[in-house]
Write a protein that binds this DNA or RNA. Structure first.
Lengths: 204, 204
DNA sequence: TAATCAATCCCCCTTTGGGGGGAATAAAAA
DNA sequence: TTTTTATTCCCCCCAAAGGGGGATTGATTA
């Protein structure tokens, strides 16, 4: 019997999912958490074989949490369970050590299949994500430096270049340089598109 | 026995929810749909007492669909079932004739309670939304004219004022006028904030 | 050691954005 | 009928954005 735990703040998903997993006969849900902090504490006490992990969680990002838990518990198999059908998120998750990626609009049986697969230490991706990864394999992930993230954040809050330069204690020209570089990295024709892309990739 | 149908593209939610509603003994799920178009066809054939309606659906907006269905079937009770804990969405839903608003991170029992309540033609709001509506009662909803929506869309796609004027066949000055008006309506200091707010309110 | 890269700064220039006004038209609502 | 509202257009002006080119430091990495 595979020991499974779930992190998701949507109680309805958790309840429905638990029912289905427990009835499958091959796995059972030993604990559920609605936030990352609870999960952190729970895993320290009682460690499951497989962790089903949502990405949008009130107290943090499931993607980052994935990397954190993999560092602590290298044997833990993590399956991302999310509504986000986006290449950048899926790729980031896999880079952070997730073994599975299942969309919430998949059938529940798919979760059971995913649990079995990652338990054998194999990767399980639902069809939609598999396709996305194949199609967009060439597209590179946008990696931002800390300074770039700061400036992106200020831009998205509507601050102008002079205002940002004052807030950060650097010259206007430096800020301008970062702006240009951000536009280049995102292939965005202006700040509006830049912020929109960043929001869609959950970088803001 | 209250007759319930569900529209939600997250099959896991639908499956879990159906189990719980059917086991409650007071309601049963007679059909489920994963898109609005299926639901439109289904309701024409077999009409339930209560419709549980997600807001983010692949082929359209649950909020708009709510108004559409209420026009066709005035007796149909609609409960919005969503992850969106946002004032503007909740208010828009109620204005469009929804009788209930339940967050997906509520307990499943809350859905059963909501079904019973709206079946008696009373309004059911989960606590979080009730609080939001009380707190933000003064904040006015942003209503956009068709032309404003078009221009907002173009702005969010990164087009400049001259480009928009060309695309729409109106002068640059007219587009400028709309821009200024949009900034005013959203109380946004520039286009970046405008688009960000619009995205957060799902107007884009 | 040589090469990268993040972070900082500088110059040039043109286009776009945004704040301030105002006004005509036609349709819809009061 | 009067009033509101959506749509359209016009003026002025300045600040900000964005495209192009560059350079220097210091840390990390190959």
């Amino acid at each position: 019997m595979i020991n499974v735990q779930i992190v998701d703040d949507h109680k309805m998903v958790v309840e429905g999912l638990s029912l289905i997993i427990n009835e499958s006969g091959i796995a059972k849900v030993s604990a559920t958490y609605s936030c990352l902090d609870d999960c952190r504490k729970g895993l320290a006490v009682f460690r499951p074989d497989v962790l089903l992990l949502d990405i949008i969680i009130p107290d943090g990002s499931g993607v980052d949490f994935c990397a954190e838990m993999r560092a602590f518990y290298p044997d833990l198999k993590i399956i991302m369970l999310t509504t986000l059908q986006e290449y950048s998120i899926a790729k980031r998750s896999l880079q952070n050590g997730a073994l599975g990626y299942v969309l919430k609009n998949a059938l529940s049986e798919e979760v059971v299949k995913a649990i079995e697969t990652v338990y054998r230490d194999e990767i399980y991706l639902c069809d939609e994500i598999n396709l996305l990864l194949k199609l967009k394999r060439k597209e590179e992930l946008i990696l931002l430096t800390p300074r770039e993230k700061e400036i992106l954040q200020f831009i998205s809050e509507g601050y102008s270049t002079p205002q940002i330069s004052e807030k950060m204690g650097i010259t206007i020209d430096t800020v301008k340089g970062y702006r240009k570089n951000l536009l280049f990295k995102f292939k965005a024709k202006n700040c509006v598109v830049l912020v929109r892309s960043a929001m869609e990739q959950r970088l803001i």
